[in-house]
Design a protein around this nucleic acid. Structure first.
Length: 293
DNA sequence: AGGCAGGTGGCCA
DNA sequence: TGGCCACCTGCC
């Protein structure tokens, strides 16, 4: 058995609540967190494994396998975007003139946007097309177990794009990816043919990065925005999926608008931090109308 | 038990 | 540009 480090407290401002921690880790930004006990979570990202819990429903604490604890300690602040004050960021949103947004923001104080590894965020969201969160989690778990390197005994990371480039499409289909197998396979080939392309994309401003990402097979505007929002802290990205379409239609009266039009509306109306508004409205919508995920 | 799901790409008007 | 449909598979 691998030993785990002592619980250590991490300063997070504003602090998580049980609901905002759950929504942040398991609300559709990331797909490799699972509940361990009533109060703690186990998660995997990049070469990292960690447990998180809220002491007294307030202070965030973490623990990691002792063998990789230093690595996790170094990675957690970036992953949780601890240098970002999401209350200050929310204050820049047009809540003063938008009571729908103001209400959702007050309901979800503590919610954060993760900053996940860019490469695996792309992989996860390529798997997300037309799938519920539970099924995306299952697909990524299978990919990791079968194709990813072992981090500590029994726990595997997601395969890298270099590794995926050598995996036949049939093997990806065997991981229950369905038609997404072709997208992952062809994207892996395309990335393998252009060394450094993905890293460079991650460093570009939102518009340029978005334009590049949608040239990948299986990556349209929605997935590109998710990758940039959850994997590169590009907060002007405004992913529009069925939930956001639903909430924007219902709450903002944007009935019969296309996804592209709503995405444009979101960027114009919410501005530079549109992606955070999206995440808050998304959380509010899911909880208002019974979670289906 | 069968329809449908955090989309995308191709085709047709 | 805008709408419609196939695409895999597992789960409600």
């Amino acid at each position: 058995m691998t030993g785990w480090s002592e619980w250590q407290t991490l300063h997070v401002s504003p602090s998580f609540t049980p609901a905002t921690l759950t929504e942040t880790l398991d609300g559709g930004q990331a797909f490799r967190w699972r509940r361990e006990h009533a109060t703690s979570w186990l998660g995997i990202w990049g070469p990292c494994v960690a447990r998180l819990q809220l002491a007294n429903d307030q202070a965030l604490q973490w623990s990691a396998p002792t063998a990789i604890a230093p690595r996790v300690a170094a990675a957690l602040p970036t992953y949780l975007a601890l240098d970002t004050d999401f209350v200050a960021l929310a204050d820049q949103l047009p809540w003063r003139s938008d009571t729908i947004l103001a209400n959702a923001l007050s309901n979800w104080r503590g919610l954060r946007l993760l900053r996940q590894p860019f490469d695996e965020t792309l992989l996860c969201f390529l798997c997300s097309a037309s799938k519920r969160i539970a099924q995306i989690k299952q697909m990524t778990e299978t990919l990791a177990q079968r194709l990813g390197a072992e981090i500590v005994p029994g726990i595997h990371r997601l395969p890298t794009w270099d590794e995926l480039a050598d995996v036949p499409e049939t093997e990806l289909r065997a991981c229950a990816l369905g038609f997404r197998a072709q997208h992952v396979h062809q994207t892996a080939r395309q990335l393998a043919a252009q060394p450094g392309w993905l890293e460079e994309t991650a460093s570009l401003p939102y518009d340029a990065a978005h334009n590049r990402l949608i040239t990948l097979p299986g990556v349209g505007p929605k997935i590109a925005d998710c990758v940039l929002l959850f994997g590169a802290a590009r907060y002007s990205a405004f992913p529009v999926d069925t939930w956001v379409l639903k909430t924007m239609s219902r709450r903002y009266g944007l009935t019969a608008w296309t996804g592209a039009h709503v995405a444009h509306f979101g960027r114009v109306h919410f501005g530079a931090n549109a992606g955070f508004a999206q995440q808050v409205l998304f959380a509010d919508e899911r909880h208002n109308g019974r979670i289906a995920g």
